[in-house]
Design a protein around this nucleic acid. Sequence first.
DNA 1: GCGGATCAC
DNA 2: TATGGTGATCCGC
Length: 867
Amino acid sequence: MDSTEEKNDSTKEKNDNYKDDLLLRVGLNDNKAGMEGLDKEKINKIIMEATKGSRFYGNELKKEKQVNQRIENMMQQKAQITSQQLRKAQLQVDRFAMELEHSRDLSNTIVHIDMDAFYAAVEMRDNPELKDKPIAVGSVSMLSTSNYHARRFGVRAAMPGFIAKRLCPQLIIVPPNFDKYRAVSREVKEILADYDPNFMAMSLDEAYVNITKHLEERQNWPEDKRKYFIKTGNSLENDKPGKEVNKLREQERSISPLLFEDSPPDLQSPGNPFQVNFEELNNLQILQNSIVFGTSAEEVVKEMRFRIEQKTTLTASAGIAPNTMLAKVCSDKNKPNGQYQILPNRQAVMDFIKDLPIRKVSGIGKVTEKMLKALGIITCTELYQQRALLSLLFSETSWHYFLHISLGLGSTQLARTFSEISKAEEQYSLCQELCSELAQDLQKEGLKGRTVTIKLKNVNFEVKTRASTVSSVVSTAEEIFAIAKELLRTEIDADFPHPLRLRLMGVRLSGFPNEEEKKCQQRSIIGFLQPGNQALSATRCIPEKTDKDQFLKPLEMSHKKSFFDKKRSERNWSYQDTFKCETVDKQSLQTSQFFHVLKKRMSENLETLENSDNCHIFTCPVCFREQRSISLEAFNKHVDACLDGPSVSGNSKMSSRSHASSTEVNEKENVHDSVSVCEKQDYETHQKNTEITSVDSVDLAETTGNPSNTEGVDALSNKHSEEECSSLPSKSFNMEHCPQNCCAVSLENEDVASLGRKEPLQPYLYEVISDQVLVCPVCNLEQKTSDLTLFNVHVDVCLNKGIIQELRKDKVNPVNQPKESTTSTDNSGKIQKIGTKANRPGLMTKYSASKKTKPNSPKHTLDIFFK
DNA sequence: GCGGATCAC
DNA sequence: TATGGTGATCCGC
């Protein structure tokens, strides 16, 4: 609702001290206080007087201190970052940025519709006495929204009513009437559904509409289909409380066709292209009673807004853009009662983004704004310029998110909704369908789990999740459904005799047992040897192409790893899961107990393996030789020997080769293959939203082989091939066909020198990367050559020399501040990824699967959601 | 796993 | 006098 607009307004200014923060928080706006209201100083004063000394104030101060502490930590970490680290990060981030750029999708037309001051507008509409008076909807303790009149006095959403009253004694506070708002909202949604049956309602007054398809069809529509009759003038005034407002009165008025003609888009904004207030229209000399809208996106949205106003007598603002993130920002641009479009070309997007304050972006809140401001970042341009630094200071989720924003990227698809399902039979049936889909995906990923969760969202958008854990793993549709059915039945019974009125259902499986993990852990444990599985990591984000704006699994990477290794792994193993190693490493590497932990970890794994009936063949994670039918003790000894032996130091070579293998394999396709489940959205009957962001048992990402033992790798690879991947072309790596996703180890004799040999990064966006200085991440020496191939060779050679020592020495995690006498990481300098998927439409789609990052707990869930 | 922090409405 | 309620995610513990 309009609280968003108010909040955005309220934070246009950046203030460091609490007082200003508070004033901003409660919604003061420097330029809204006009002659009729109060000036800014007065408003501030009143708010402070009402606030100071209160418990609330004390708590605000406390919270502010915490944030300041976080910022301080962050600045300390920043101070420790070396220029070399920054350069490395730059390369890494830029490569990722390039990939994002390649995946940019401008083919969708997303509209964000936002009703103006919704609750207040409804109240005013239904009670003309309130018109021209300052009103707010809410209570003495909290206001939901206020009308524009009241805003001139500094009265805003999320402000306590008693303070608002002090600001504006004549303020009328209307208690909310949600039933009424819901009814109006439904009317609006009915209109939106005409343009996109799968539109995504974010709340009663906000929705995203993907009009891409509608636009296509519309091109061939005759005028008749784009013609609307105009309701009589003065309807706003004529509508009395309780009066039916939706009757279309056929009075003979018309609109100047010029106002609505298709116009060159670049003629639109930044002014309001649609400043047509229908009240004003009524004053025009209108000769006809109908209006024909054009076929452009702009016209479609004008039509939508026209229809909304005709039907509800309420105005809406809208943003039109190639993705949700941008559309949302756009809808704020010409509010109230306006619209704004970003044309679907890169330049237009970049121009728009250029000076955009990051705070305008959904998902960047007060705290993030403040933290970034401490780094000198206020606009999106600055966000982009500091990308390397951000990647070192923030979690991968966060900096990926930032990068998306600074590139003007966001979701291009909306989560799907289905129309209400109230019949129990249909609900069971849908549930069963979901279970089948889930089972297929599980099979594809080779997963079984013990916890089945259903998620239900009713027509009022209330969400419930109910879970049940069983003693043994399940994976088939029947098994899952048996459990899910009971959960659903409980919910249906609970509401009896009323039906469950659902608009979303989801089924999730989690609690993947250790066998799955261990299998892979066994093979991947050597990944610990890889420089830098710990600490900082980079999430692999599947760029939005079809529906996948969701982050896929984090791919652990380290700033300590060779840039090229990182790149290789990033590119090749985007879909692999190495975090299992990672969490442990955070501790282990920091205490330099590398091998100790490695061994410990292995024995833990092996203990589990011991309990597993089907695991009698051990593959040494160091030499990669299979150890058949030996006792655990013997195997441990073997591993110890391997670890203590000289072979370890060479593992990186294999690493290079391993990474090499699929670098040249069309990685995008691989990624898409692996997430193909995410694309199953087109269902005739129920639109579904299937998302999988995690793949369990995928640990080989950083697996390295013993360089002196290539056949070890080959052996494993072959074994793998035979067992699981026989159908795969030798050089292609298709996750979909490899349940364990460990086929990645099957390496071909790819030319190592061709690794990472992509073109040097192109100058990008606002910043030109001039003369790259290639610094070997291992020896830290600058390499004269600018030839990436030669440089790679150097790095590989370097790695072969003393990777372990380097690994320790070079291990720097700017983010993690060592805590005194503890091995845990201190992430106070990080920020978590902020906002929810639902709330950050710019980047995420809804209900992507979650993944935990604890080594010994279920790490993945596999979700299937229909929305 | 849970709770705190953050964000959005 | 007095500063919401809920849902969602990330992250550290």
